[in-house]
C-alpha cells in the first residue's frame, strides 16, 4: 500500500472481485430497485383499504396475500422497503455527518478536547440505546423522522470513534509530517490527507450501521414508535401480524423475510468491503 490513499476506483474494483461483496451487492441493488419502483408502480394502491378483501392468503390476484385491511401485501412490502432504506440511510448520514468531523477534530487537536469528546462518547455509549430511542420518540412523538433522529444519535459516537482511530493511525505517517513541515494547517491536512485515507474505513462502518439501522427501525416500528400508518413499514406489519399469526402466519413470515434479506445483503457488502480493505484478513479466506 502506498502512503497516499488507494484510488477509490481501484478499491471498488477489488471489492467486485470479492464473492461476498458481489452477492451482497446484487441483493441490495434488487431491494433498492424494488423501493424505487414503488414510487412509480405497485400492484395495488396501498392507501385504499378494502376491508371486504381482508386477510386473503397468497393467490394469483395477490401474490403475497392481503393484510387485515385488505391491502395487497406485495405492494406493502415494496413501499415498506422505501421506508426502511430511507430511515437507515439518513440515520447513517447523521452519524457520519456529526461523528466523523468530531472524531477527526479530536484526533487533530488531542489534549483536553480529545478527552472531552471521548468522554461524551462514553456517556452516549453507556445509555441503553433502545430505551433511549423509545424516550426520544415518546417526547417528540412517534414517526419516521423521530426514529431517524433516535437511531442517528447513537450512530454519532460509533463514527466518531472509527474516524478518530483511523485518523490517529495516519497522523504520525511521513507524508503528514511533510505536509505539516510545508506549513499546512491541521484543518487543511485533515481535509486533504486524513479524510481520503479513512474513507474506506468509514465505508465499511457505514454499511454495518446501515444494516443495524434497518434492524433498529424495524424494532422501533414493531413497538409502534417508527413510521406511522398509513405509511407501510416492515416492523409495523410484523406488529399487526402478531395477533393474527394463529390464523394467517404468512402475515408475519413475509415482512420478516424482507428484513432478513435486506440486512443480509448489506452485511455481505460490509464483509466484502472489510476483506478488501484489510488484505491480511483476505489472505485468510
Amino acid at each position: 500500500m502506498s502512503d497516499e490513499a488507494l484510488p477509490r476506483t481501484g478499491f471498488m474494483a477489488q471489492a467486485f472481485a470479492n464473492r461476498s461483496f458481489v452477492a451482497g451487492f446484487v441483493i441490495t441493488a434488487f431491494i433498492a430497485a424494488v423501493a424505487l419502483l414503488s414510487f412509480f408502480w405497485t400492484p395495488y394502491d396501498v392507501t385504499r383499504l378494502i376491508v371486504a378483501d381482508r386477510m386473503q392468503p397468497p393467490s394469483a390476484a395477490h401474490l403475497l396475500g392481503t393484510d387485515q385491511f385488505g391491502r395487497d401485501m406485495l405492494s406493502m412490502i415494496m413501499v415498506g422497503a422505501r421506508n426502511s432504506i430511507a430511515v437507515a440511510l439518513v440515520a447513517v448520514g447523521i452519524g457520519m455527518g456529526v461523528g466523523v468531523p468530531l472524531g477527526c477534530w479530536a484526533a487533530a487537536r488531542g489534549g483536553y478536547i480529545d478527552d472531552v469528546l471521548m468522554r461524551f462518547n462514553d456517556i452516549v455509549f453507556a445509555f441503553p440505546a433502545l430505551l433511549s430511542a423509545i424516550m426520544i420518540t415518546a417526547i417528540f412523538g412517534p414517526g419516521a423522522v423521530n426514529a431517524i433522529i433516535a437511531i442517528g444519535i447513537f450512530n454519532i459516537p460509533v463514527f466518531a470513534r472509527v474516524a478518530r482511530a483511523g485518523a490517529l493511525a495516519i497522523w504520525p505517517r511521513e507524508f503528514i509530517l511533510a505536509a505539516r513541515a510545508a506549513g499546512k494547517g491541521k484543518g487543511l491536512i485533515t481535509a486533504q490527507h486524513i479524510l481520503p485515507n479513512i474513507t474506506n474505513l468509514l465505508l465499511v462502518q457505514g454499511t454495518i450501521q446501515f444494516a443495524l439501522g434497518i434492524l433498529a427501525e424495524a424494532g422501533l416500528s414493531y413497538v409502534g414508535l417508527g413510521a406511522q400508518p398509513p405509511m407501510p413499514s416492515w416492523g409495523r406489519m410484523l406488529f399487526d401480524a402478531q395477533t393474527r399469526m394463529i390464523v394467517a402466519p404468512y402475515l408475519a413470515i413475509i415482512p420478516g423475510m424482507a428484513i432478513v434479506i435486506t440486512v443480509l445483503g448489506l452485511n455481505l457488502i460490509g464483509d466484502g468491503l472489510a476483506d478488501t480493505l484489510d488484505p491480511k484478513l483476505r489472505r485468510r479466506r
Binding site: 385504499r48 383499504l49 387485515q68 385491511f69 415518546a138 406511522q228 400508518p229 398509513p230
Partner: peptide
Amino acid sequence: ARDGGQIIASELRDIGIDAEIIPVEWAD
C-alpha cells in the same frame, strides 16, 4: 382507534377529506 382510524381516513379520502393520522399516547 388505531385500526378504525386507518379505515376512517381511507373513507374520508373517498369524499375528498385528507385526514392525516397522528398517533398519540394516552398522556398526550
